[in-house]
Lab assay of single mutants.
Amino acid sequence: GHYRIRINGREFEIRGISEEEIRHLEEALRNGADEKILKEIVDRLRG
């Protein structure tokens, strides 16, 4: 998958993330885990 997200007015492209991972992120966001989720995304993109 290849997705664009906007955070604090800046747009980011996220590549190589699966539909299942996105559902997991959405679930966590609904549970209020904003900073933790951003850290997970950044860590994943770093490799």
Rank of each mutant, 00 (worst) to 15 (best):
L25H: 00
I7S: 00
E13Q: 05
E35W: 15
Y3F: 15
L29N: 02
H2F: 14
D34L: 13
G47Q: 11
V42T: 04
E27H: 13
V42S: 03
R46L: 15
N31T: 12
R46H: 13
A28F: 11
I7N: 00
E26Y: 11
E21W: 10
R44M: 09
L29F: 07
G1F: 13
G9C: 04
I17N: 02
N8C: 11
E19P: 12
D34R: 05
F12K: 00
K36P: 04
E19W: 11
I5P: 00
I7V: 05
L45F: 13
R10P: 00
I5S: 00
H24S: 12
E19I: 13
E27W: 13
R4S: 03
E35D: 12
R6L: 14
K39A: 13
I41F: 11
E11V: 15
L38A: 03
V42W: 13
E11N: 04
E27N: 11
L29K: 04
E11M: 11
E21L: 05
R44V: 07
L25Y: 03
K36F: 12
H2C: 15
I17Q: 02
E40T: 10
K39S: 09
E20K: 08
I22M: 06
A33F: 09
L29I: 14
L29M: 11
R44N: 08
G16A: 05
A33K: 07
I22N: 01
I41R: 02
E21G: 11
F12N: 00
D43V: 08
A28W: 12
G16R: 04
I41S: 02
D43L: 12
H24C: 12
G9L: 01
G1D: 10
E26I: 09
I14F: 15
E40S: 13
N8G: 13
D34P: 13
Y3M: 10
N8A: 06
D43E: 10
L38M: 08
D43K: 10
E21K: 04
I7C: 05
R10F: 13
Y3G: 01
E20T: 09
G47F: 08
E27A: 12
I5C: 14
L45T: 03
L29D: 01
I7P: 00
K39V: 13
E35L: 12
E40A: 14
L45K: 02
S18A: 06
H24T: 13
E19Y: 10
R10T: 11
E27V: 07
D43A: 12
I17D: 02
E26W: 11
R23M: 13
E13M: 09
E11Y: 13
E11G: 01
K36Q: 11
K36W: 10
G1C: 14
E11P: 02
L38I: 12
G16V: 08
S18Q: 04
E19R: 09
N31R: 09
L45V: 06
E20M: 08
I14S: 00
